[in-house]
Design a binder for these strands. Structure first.
Lengths: 201, 201
DNA sequence: TCTACTATACCGTCCAGTCGGTATAGTGAA
DNA sequence: TTCACTATACCGACTGGACGGTATAGTAGA
């Protein structure tokens, strides 16, 4: 085995580092061409490093996926804390950020979903853990757990459409500003009726 | 026999035919091991035929995907017509069938999503077309398009969780009978409030 | 000298697709 | 009834390329 500096890296090299460029290239390729397209050669070429250089930082393809997944977790934790103190409210922030806007987190989430589909259990686990984080915040914000769940599902649906499905067909779900606002209005009323009308079935 | 099969390939050589067995095996492997696991060898082995046998029926891996996608379209069209005349109503039927119950259509949808993730544009297209079919039926049923959209998104979310993500983590979204009933109640109220409060933005 | 690479070559495995062959059933003619 | 031939359905060895990973020699900067 070679002595790679990676393992469970304590140090954070500055942003534009080769390591970061490799991670971004991996992410890009995952999004654009799926897991099949994200070969070591392709990632290295995209990142502008040699294959050897890539493997210097991440000892294996699995290590590369691990490094990427760690980055996702970090990004998600930051996002959740931003969401908690969003000026327009948690629900507004949450729904709005459920459509792919090309943020770093969006990209990482999409890439992770690709990985999860190819039966990388770590990707599924992290994705599920992030969802749990979200659910907690939304329950806290809207009170009613059924409404919170519906909101999370709408978010999932939005995400699924705009991020996962969106590249093959035009506009599977309306994701315009106006469409989103209407949806947010409805969703916010949803948490109201949940309280106002406890039995209706 | 004749050189041209009738209108839309409707020659149905009884259910357990080799062709069908191959399609089912392909689907199974797509679901269980993702696109990577669904190799020609694996599919052939699963279907109990040789690779040559498989390739006799479907000229290439692409042809296999095509055959499978065609089957999905057929299943979806049947399902939509069943939904239109569901005794408990379109919304109830739609939400309930949004969680993976292991029906033929469920399995085909999951498998197709796997394919779509691996950038097979045909899979994305068909999935989007099916979603459009659903949206039309739900709009027709609930009247309000925003509510219909929310319902479709909840369905997408449910589907995404139970079918696509569900294998990595325990219970990402509560999909129990009770949980589903609560959600349906809420969703049906959702179409009511949409009418009751037209301006809120 | 150490770190952080580049460049190139190579190995073993996996995988899609090819190809020659086999088995069986049917068909028309002598 | 037998012969010649065709069509359909399938088998499995093999080929060629892609890919993950290893190895090694060399280089520029701190």
């Amino acid at each position: 085995m070679s002595s790679a500096p990676d393992v469970s890296d304590q140090r954070m090299p500055h942003r534009g580092s080769t390591r970061d460029r490799i991670l971004v290239a991996y992410e890009d390729l995952l999004i654009e061409s799926g897991e099949r397209g994200a070969t070591l050669d392709a990632v290295a070429a995209r990142a502008g490093v040699s294959k050897g250089g890539l493997l210097y930082h991440f000892g294996s393809k699995d290590g590369l996926a691990g490094g990427f997944l760690k980055r996702l977790r970090d990004l998600a934790e930051v996002d959740v804390s931003v969401m908690r103190s969003a000026p327009a409210g948690v629900v507004d922030y949450f729904i709005r950020t459920s459509v792919n806007a090309g943020t770093e987190l969006d990209r990482a989430l999409i890439a992770a979903a690709r990985l999860a589909q190819t039966s990388d259990p770590r990707a599924s686990e992290i994705l599920a853990a992030i969802r749990t984080l979200w659910l907690d915040v939304v329950i806290e914000a809207v009170g009613d757990p059924v409404a919170a769940r519906a909101i999370l599902l709408i978010s999932d649906g939005l995400y699924y459409n705009s991020a996962l499905m969106g590249m093959g067909a035009p506009d599977p779900a309306d994701v315009s500003d106006e469409g989103l606002q209407k949806l947010i209005d409805m969703v916010e009323r949803l948490s109201t009726i949940a309280h106002g009308d406890p039995d209706a079935g």
